[in-house]
Design a protein around this nucleic acid. Sequence first.
RNA 1: CGGGAUGUGGCUCAGUUUGGUAGAGCGCUUGGUUUGGGACCAAGAUGCCGCAGGUUCGAAUCCUGUCAUCCCGACCA
Length: 478
Amino acid sequence: MADNKKMVEAITPMDEDFAKWYTDVVKKAELASYSGVRGCMIIRPYGTALWENIRNDLDSRFKKSGHENIMLPMFIPESLLQREKDHVEGFAPEVAWVTHGGDEKLPERLCVRPTSETLFCDHYHDIIHSYRDLPKLYNQWCSVVRWEKTTRPFLRTTEFFWQEGHTMHETAREAMDETEQMLGVYADFCEQSLAIPVLKGKKTDKEKFAGAESTYTIEAMMHDGKALQSATSHYFGDGFSRAFEIQFTGRDNTLQYPFQTSWGMSTRIIGAIIMTHGDDNGLVVPPAVAPIQLVIIPIAPHKPGVTDAAAALKERLKSFVRVNLDDSDNSAGWKFAEHEMKGVPLRLELGPRDIENNQCVIVRRDNREKTVVSLDELDTKIPELLKAVHDGLYQKALKRQISMTYSAVSMDEIKDTAESKPGFIKAMWCGNVECENELKEKAGVTSRCIPFEQEHISDNCVCCGKKAEHMVVWGKAY
RNA sequence: CGGGAUGUGGCUCAGUUUGGUAGAGCGCUUGGUUUGGGACCAAGAUGCCGCAGGUUCGAAUCCUGUCAUCCCGACCA
C-alpha cells in the first residue's frame, strides 16, 4: 500500500522503540491520558468502556461460580495491616499513608488499601462462627494504591482498578480447589474473551504473594517477548485465620481455623491486550470485549441516499452487534486510520456503488482482509467475521508464543538465549532460591512460573547441576 | 530510589547560549469544494512559557526550590 507509511506516522513503529509504541497506542487509541497526580492516569471513555466489558464478563463468571460482590473501606488502620507479619513486610515499602490535617489525637495511622486481605479477615472474624457459615465466597471491585517507584499506563500505576476475590473455606482441600478453579476462570477468560493464550503455573517461593502459602499465576507473552503476569490466585492456608483469630466450630464440635484464598485481575490486563494484539497501526481489541465491534463508514456521504442508508443499517445491526456509525465530516481515509488506531475489529464501508449492488465491504482489523458481503447476509456474516477475528488473534498470539519459547540445559545456554532472543526459556531447576538469584544476576531472567504442564528438559538444575525438581519457565517480565 | 532528558496555545516543537512587544506547523471554529487509505481553498480564535519564590527598570530566557512526564537501572500486579 503506497500510503502505508503516511498512515501510521502518528504511532512509533514497534521495532523502532517498543516502549514508545506502547504509550503512543495508549494515547492515540484514547484509552488513557496522564493526570496531574504522579503515576495516576485518567482512563478515558473508550478505555473505561473496554474495562466495563472486561469487568462484566469476569463478574458473570464469578457469579456463575457462586461468588458475591461486597464493598469494604479503602482505608486500613495500621494495626490491622500489621497483623500478619509476611504480609506487612511485603507491602510496607509501597503503602500510601494518609496524613490527617494536623490532628494529633487520632488513635492510629491509616493507609490506603494496597490490597484488602486484612480488611476481609477483620470482617470474617466477625461473621464466621460455624461450619454452616462457610464457605464465604466474596469478591470486591475497587481500586487500590501501591506507591511504585516507576509507573506506566495500565501496566503499573500508583492507583489501579481491579477485582479481588477473598474466600474462606472449611478445609484446606476446598480452599486449594477454589484457588485452582479461579486460576482456571482467569485462563478461560483470557483465552475465550481476550484471545490471549496464557501459561498456567505456580510461582516460586521467591515470587509468591506476601503472606501466601502458594501463588498461582497466568503468564502471557507480549509482542516483545517479555512476560506479563496477567492474574494471580493465592492459597493462604490458615495463616491469616490464625493471625486474625478467625475460628469456627466444626462438624465435630471442635474449634477450627478456616482456609483462605484470594485472587485478582487488574486494569493491567488492558496492557496485555495492547501488547499481545496491537500492531504498528495501533490497538486491536478482541471482539468479545470491544466497546465498538463494528464501525460503519459511509463513503461519499453527500451523495443522495448514502447517509440514510448508513443510519438505517446501524439501526438494523445494533440488535446483535455493538455498532457505531461514523458520520463525522472527516474524510473516509481519516476514519479508516482512526478506527484502526482504536482497534475496532470490523469496519463496514458503505458507498454509492455498494448501495446500488445491495452490498457492503467489511474489513477485518487483524489482517485487513476485505470481504464483499450482501446486505441480506449481514446477520450471519458479521458474527462469523467477529469469530474469525477472535480466532485469528488467538492463533497469531499462540504461534508467536510457541516460536519464542526456547529451552536451555546449561547456564551458558540460558544466558546466551536470554541475551540474544527475547521470549520464554524452559529450563530445569533444583528448587533453591540461590539458583534463582544467580540466574537473575547472570542471565537477567526471573522465574515466571512452574507450569502445570511439566516437561523434561534435562535431569539437572540449569544453575547448580544438582538433581532438578521442576521445569521452570524463565524470562524477562513487566 | 539512583543516572540521564524534558515541561512554551489541544498536539509536535522553535525561541533560552547573549534578559527587551509570544512564534511555526498540525489541530480547532466558520463558509465553500471534497470523501473507496489520514483532502483542499479562504477567513478567524486560542498562551500569567509546569508551579512557587528570588535577582533585575524589565524574566519563557538567569538563580533556588518544587511538581509532573519520558528513557535506563534497582523494587513491584
